[in-house]
Each structure stands twice: as C-alpha cells, then as structure tokens.
Amino acid sequence: MEPRIVQVQENVLRKNDRLARQLRERFRTSGVFVINVVSSPGAGKTTLLRETLLQLKSRYRVAAVVGDLATANDARRLAESGVPVRQITTGTTCHLDAVMIEKSLAGWDLKNLDFLFIENVGNLVCPASYDLGEDLRVVLFSVTEGEDKPAKYPTLVSTSDLALVTKVDLSDAVGFDGVAFAEAIENVRPDIRVIAVSARSGVGLDAWLRALGTARAARESRPAGNAAAPPGQEA
C-alpha cells in the first residue's frame, strides 16, 4: 500500500497538561496558591523553604510537598517548620509530574490551605516541561553556581515567573558578579523579577514573602476561568 499520512496534531505531554489544568482549577476554587520551586541540586531550596514556612505559618495556613529521587531527608527538614509536609520519592524519574502531585494531595483538604509549596527534584532541565498546575514557578540560582547559569538553562528560566538568587551571604566569598548575573537572566527572560535572598542571614526574605502575598492577591482578583495559562506563559 502507498504510504499515507494520518494527522494527529497533539501535544506529546497532553496527559500531563490536561491533569495540570484540572489541578490548577482545583487549586483556584479551593483558594490555595501553589508555588513550584525549581533549581539545580544544592541551590538551597529546602533551607529557603523551611525559613519561608516558618515565617508564613503565623499568618497563613501553609503546607509543602517535596520531591526527591531518594530519601525523605528533605521532607524531614521541612517538617521541622511544624507545617504539614509530604514526600514524593520519584526513584529514577528526574522531575515531578501532575500525576505525582495529584496523588500526593490525597486526603488533604485544600480549602484549609492558603499556600502550598512544591519543592521539585533538583534539576534545571526536565521540570521545565511538566506543568504541575502551579500558580507561580520560582527558579533559584545560588551565588556559588556562577553567573551564566541562566544562559545554560534557558528553557527552565523562560517558563519561570520569579527568580531568587540564594546564599547571597556568600557573595563576597565566592566573588559572585551580580551585574553579570542580572544581564544573563535578563537576556533569557526579559523583565523577570529577581530577588536576592539568604535563608541564613535573613536578607531578602521580607521581599520574597511580600512577592508571594502580592502574587496570591493578583490571582484572587482575576476573574474565574482565567487561570488556565501555565506559569510563564500568560503573555
């Protein structure tokens, strides 16, 4: 038989995208604001989140889900903050997907939460492709990683809504060039907001917490049904 073409025209990750859309709608109707935190391994996601949970919990109802290839160590560290934490162990999978998030939420009444943080697997490549239904995607770069990291991982940066430079208390020790970093990230993701923080010294945490409050308020003021765009793709 002569070869012929059967049109398909489907996103290869359609199952994930579909579920992510449902999750986003569920988060919105429940009133919980969801933040997906992504970075390379060792950029300081867990330490920053622990501080964030500690500071938010007096004013808001907060919880966290943390993904790791193996061990529940990060979940234990986050649980020190005294808020509900769940671990997703991904085994060999290098990212979290919407199915894992949905499963991890079983039994939690999302209506009782104001903020839910998802700590993704430490990886600057794969998490970019998987929408988790989050409202805000936050990418972390630590000062120890070098200024050109954004140029090396443009896909993840281009889907992020906010960037944090972490461990800034070490800036001088490692000779971090903030201007070069700002230029590198501005090239990849023009106008992205960048906040410099240190979970250890407390620098920048107020600005980070305020940014979370502002983003949550902005979502609440958008009309229903307008929340379907994945992070970084509202434009």
Binding site: Q7, V8, Q9, L13, R189, P190, Q233
Partner: peptide, 18 residues
C-alpha cells in the same frame, strides 16, 4: 521580548502509515 510565540512545541504531528 518575553512574548514567546513558538519554540515550546513538543507535538506529534502525524503518522505515516502504509
């Protein structure tokens, strides 16, 4: 410009069958 119009695609466009 952060207004990305194309480049994020990961699509199965068609199948070639016989």
């Amino acid at each position: 410009s952060a207004d990305i119009r194309r480049g994020r695609e990961l699509e199965l466009v068609a199948l070639e069958v016989s």
